[in-house]
């Protein structure tokens, strides 16, 4: 393989991982932006999304097979179900804690994370589940560089989801209300905005994006495990902070950067892929020292 081939191959790999990170990071950053909560249960929603997608796929594969149609259907249904789960978690666990000290709600988020991961662990007996699809291994072959149709489809679906989100947040009144709540909740109430409803909507969107990433990961890796949300939760958090927590384009950029960094990091001589987490968290530490607000993080402008 020539250097150019390696670069192209790693670019493809990096973009795929980056898409997963970005989708999960979006939920992190949106929830943080709106209620200043680091939702540690977010990675577990990604995991639950994968499992729910698996259940739905098993249920409908009798009719639709394990084709693209079936997978897209399971992804959409899983997004709806997990989105709803996110709203319920917000209503039951977080809303009563909003006026409590920051630390209490953070600990609540950790508790929710444990309930979700341990819940799935006890249901699955801690076993790996095989996520079978009959997508095959076809793809685009550029000599030494190979990109499967599955990989291509994942990157495209992730891009579509992100584009829809970007449009929603910046072009619709509900999206603008979401941004406004991050700036001033009381003022939003005085505009006639039902703040609790918009917060619930934010959880719905964030959770369903995580679920989409979870189903994609199931398709991509072909297996599911209850612990799969933990590391990606940390990575997505890192991506969100790199991009500037609270910023939606920042989360997308941070996710893609992190994916690319990990992909290329494994190509450095004498350093294997087991070091990729070191790159991610090393970058996080470096960034926190050099630019704590993240790449696209805002510095507040105050004028009286």
């Amino acid at each position: 393989m020539s250097t150019q081939d390696i670069i192209l191959q790693q670019l493809a790999n990096g973009l795929i991982m980056g898409s997963f990170y970005a989708l999960v990071a979006l939920g992190y950053t949106m929830v943080y932006g709106i209620i200043k909560l680091l939702n540690f249960a977010h990675g577990d929603l990604y995991m639950v999304g994968g499992f729910v997608g698996f259940l739905i796929l098993s249920a409908i594969s009798g009719v639709l097979g394990e084709s693209w149609t079936a997978i897209v259907c399971s992804m959409v249904l899983s997004m709806l179900a997990v989105g709803l789960l996110g709203v319920i978690i917000q209503r039951v666990a977080y809303r009563p804690m909003l006026t409590a000290p920051r630390l209490s709600i953070l600990i609540t988020a950790l508790a929710v994370s444990m309930i979700l991961s341990n819940g799935v662990m006890s249901i699955t007996d801690g076993e790996y589940l095989a996520f079978n699809t009959d997508l095959g291994f076809d793809g685009l072959d550029f000599g030494n560089v190979f990109i499967s149709y599955t990989q291509l489809a994942l990157v495209i679906s992730a891009s579509v989801l992100m584009f829809v989100l970007y449009f929603f947040v910046n072009k619709t009144l509900y999206g603008k209300a979401m941004q406004a709540i991050a700036i001033d909740q009381d003022a939003c109430k005085l505009m006639g905005i039902n703040v609790n409803r918009i917060i619930a909507l934010t959880f719905f969107i964030g959770s369903s994006l995580a679920a989409a990433a979870g189903v994609m990961a199931g398709v991509y890796y072909g297996s599911l495990h209850f612990s799969m949300g933990f590391v990606i939760g940390l990575k997505a958090f890192t991506a969100a902070v790199i991009g500037g927590i609270g910023s939606i384009p920042g989360a997308m950029l941070g996710g893609l950067l992190l994916g690319l960094l990990e992909a290329f990091g494994t190509q450095i001589p004498f350093i294997g892929s087991e070091w990729k987490d070191v790159f991610s968290f090393g970058l996080l530490i470096l960034l926190l020292i050099l630019k704590p607000t993240g790449i696209l993080g805002k510095t507040e402008i105050e004028r009286m």
């Binding site: 603008k176 003022a187 505009m191 006639g192 805002k298 507040e300």
Partner: peptide, 19 residues
């Protein structure tokens, strides 16, 4: 005043008509 700083004037007005 509590205007939404970081958003444009037009966006501020649009939010005023949220209902």
């Amino acid at each position: 005043r509590r205007i939404f700083k970081g958003m444009t004037i037009q966006e501020n007005l649009e939010l005023g008509s949220f209902t």
